[in-house]
Amino acid sequence: MNAEVLFGLAGAVLAGLGLYGLVADPAPLRKLLAFNLLGGGVFLVFGVVARRGAAAGLGGDPVPQALVITGLVVAFAATALAVALLRLLFERTGQTLLDSAAPERTSPDQADE
């Protein structure tokens, strides 16, 4: 196993971990964290593609690297807007749950019924 495969597999696992948090955690702030975690993993897989494209005296292909930089900035912009929306939701309703009609649940497993 070389470093590229190692980092590529790590990126895939991180993306899966982020997707799990995004789907399974009901708290919007946690979803937002998971979304950014997922993004980091996907960018890392792309970074491995860039690394494998090393040529012409460069350590990696600059085109995917530049695309990742743009991606990071756009992810930040989306996160900033989501945080602002979340704060507004909290100020209006005193809670941050997306399911506004949800009653207080006592047992975690009741959520499935």
Binding site: G11, L19, V23, R105, D109
Partner: peptide, 26 residues
């Protein structure tokens, strides 16, 4: 803010399956 209740075990198991499947692709 009121703490969100954790997702149920079925939801979590489905989420694990989905994430594993999606992570397998990359």
């Amino acid at each position: 803010a009121r703490q969100a209740t954790r997702a149920g075990s079925v939801t979590r198991r489905l989420a694990i399956a989905l994430s594993a499947l999606v992570a397998a692709a990359p």
